[in-house]
Each structure stands twice: as structure tokens, then as C-alpha cells.
Write a protein that binds this DNA or RNA. Structure first.
Ligand code: FES
Ligand code: FES
Lengths: 155, 155
DNA sequence: CACAAACAGGACTAAAACAGTACAGTATCT
DNA sequence: AGATACTGTACTGTTTTAGTCCTGTTTGTG
């Protein structure tokens, strides 16, 4: 299926939520407003902060915010933050390039596939994913997103 | 990682092998020459035949061959034959389109991601993956491919 | 300073997906 | 008839994923 992790799916939901009000938001707050359960949101945000996409502040009034202007963030960045480099085959490790280029006669070819996929994801920005919320009742919005993109946490 | 199944990786190896001599080849023959074990090769070929990419002939002198000219086969076809439609998120089922377009405010956006990925894979053809074998000792070739793309079956 | 808010890191478990194998059945050729 | 070779499906052990929880650290507030 060439599927993305569920966590990445949730992450987009949460990030879109964070995108709406650009202030520093706590994990609990985001969990509340996105409908994704707190432990999961927390896990996602920690990872995103670790990879530098978000910045975090500890202590009272702490929370998460974008580390840079969110306008330029691409889906590549989001996916790679949560799943590591986009690598279609197992032989390609963290470097992003196949480490056996010199010995495997297929290497350059699989690399070409990776590059093609990555480039296509580069062209989709996070803000392109933002739901057109202005036309919807916020509660409906939340309900539908949870139902489809965060189905695990329904009653 | 956005990774493809191991079976799909093997499939490319086996298909490249089949590409070299375009005759009808038996599963056992292909297993022998590609280094992938027979049951696995058999599973892959059966699936590829089921989805129409390959044609099969039973009985003595039977085997598998391409159902159409292999020149035009894209990676999309190979991947979809083995893993089903390319769908980055779980909400997109067999149809290839998100089935909740009318109710999910994100739907069109995820679809855009899918389309972008699929298009980029459309542009990579199977014959582009063919190892440049003419420069290599066939035994080395086989050893390296097995080591990297079919690691399960090493002694 | 004590306490509460909030993030950091990692360990753990249950469930799902995958890889690989096996086997009984059917078609074809000689 | 018998050998070859594909077909379909079921089974099992392993690996990955999803989700939760706990313990520690940082920071603001009274
Ligand atoms: S080892 Fe990386 S493509 Fe073959
Ligand atoms: S339900 Fe398919 S994109 Fe939201």
C-alpha cells in the first residue's frame, strides 16, 4: 500500500490544528481540540520537537510552536520527522542514499525511485492540507477528522 | 519510512531476471537464477499473473512471461500488483480515491498526495531498474542482489 | 522554597501486518 | 499414466506498529 504511519496521519491533524492559532499550545490543549488522545499527541509532538520542526518550552505556560514559519513546511519534512528518511527499499538507511551504490547494480535505480517520490512530496506543503474549516461547524469538523484519521479513540 | 514490501523488492529482482531472456520461464528456473527461494518466487509470480502483469502457462514447459510488452511497464504497475493501490493514508481503500470526500475536509488534500506519489512512480519504468549486468560477472551479480535485496535466504 | 504545569525520554504490552512455508488441487505435455 | 508446473489457500513464527504509562527535568508562581 505504500502507506504512511498512523502517527503521521495524526500528526497532520494536530499540526493543522496548531496552524490555526500560531501561539504556543500545550499538548493537552492540542489533544483536547483535535480529538486525538493526549499520550499519542504527546508522543508525536515530542518527536517533532526532537527533529526540529517544532520548538518546545517547558514549565508553566510551556507548550509547542513551530520552530520556523509554517508556510514553507512540506509533507516531506513532516513524514521524515516521524518516519525517518523516505526510503522505498530496506537497503537505504539513514543517510538517505543507498549505502551500497558501489556494489549493487540496482542501487542507482532504487535511488531514482526514492528521489522521485521525495520530490513529489516536496511539492505538497503542510498548509495545503489545512481543512477548509470556515465552512464547517467546528464540532462536525472535529468529529469527522477523528472518525477518519484518528479512529482508534472513538468511544 | 514509506517503505515498499520486501516481496515487491524481490519482485523487481525476479522481473529484471525475466526481462533479460524474454521467453517463458518456470518459477523454479527463475528462483535458481535470481537466488530467491522457490516458494517466495512462486508466491510473487502467482500474484503478478493474477493481476495480469504476467501470463502463465501450466503443465510441462509451462512458466511465466510478460502479458504485454515489458517496455511500458511502470513501477506503479508492479507495486500496485503486489500491494494494491498506492494509498498513503488508511482512509483510502481499493477505489484509489478517498471514499469520504464528501464528508472529510481533508480528503482532497490527502488525495493530492497520493496522486503526486503515483505520478512520480509512473515515470519510473521497470526497464529502468534493470541492472547493468554486462559489466559484471553473473555470479557476483547474483550474490550482491541476494545479499541486499533478498537477504532472508542467505546461508 | 515548595508546588504545579508541562515537556523529555524511555520502557512496556497488545494487536496487527508481514514473510516465509506447506500442501492439496488442476492443467498440460509426452 | 506420469511428470511438470501453475493455483489457491491456509498456517505459523517474527517483526513492526500503536498506544499507554512511568519516572525525571525544567520552569513559572505564590
Ligand atoms: S543495495 Fe541499495 S539498491 Fe541494491
Ligand atoms: S477521510 Fe480520506 S482524507 Fe479524510
Amino acid at each position: 500500500m505504500l502507506k504512511v504511519n498512523k502517527l503521521t496521519d495524526y500528526a497532520v491533524v494536530v499540526l493543522c490544528d496548531l496552524l490555526r492559532g500560531q501561539a504556543l499550545r500545550s499538548a493537552a490543549d492540542l489533544a483536547q481540540s483535535s480529538g486525538v488522545p493526549l499520550p499519542t499527541v504527546s508522543k508525536i509532538l515530542k518527536q517533532l520537537a526532537r527533529t526540529g520542526l517544532l520548538q518546545s518550552a517547558r514549565g508553566v505556560n510551556g507548550g509547542y510552536g513551530f520552530a520556523k514559519s509554517p508556510d514553507g513546511i512540506s509533507m516531506t519534512e513532516v513524514i521524515e520527522a516521524l518516519e525517518g528518511p523516505i526510503a522505498v527499499t530496506g537497503c537505504i538507511e539513514d543517510s538517505g542514499d543507498c549505502e551500497h551504490l558501489h556494489e549493487c547494480p540496482m542501487s542507482g535505480h532504487w535511488n531514482a525511485v526514492n528521489v522521485a517520490v521525495r520530490r513529489s512530496l516536496d511539492e505538497v506543503r503542510l498548509i495545503d492540507m489545512l481543512p477548509e474549516a470556515r465552512f464547517m461547524d467546528p464540532e462536525d469538523l472535529s468529529r469527522v477528522i477523528v472518525a477518519r484519521h484518528a479512529p482508534a479513540m472513538q468511544a
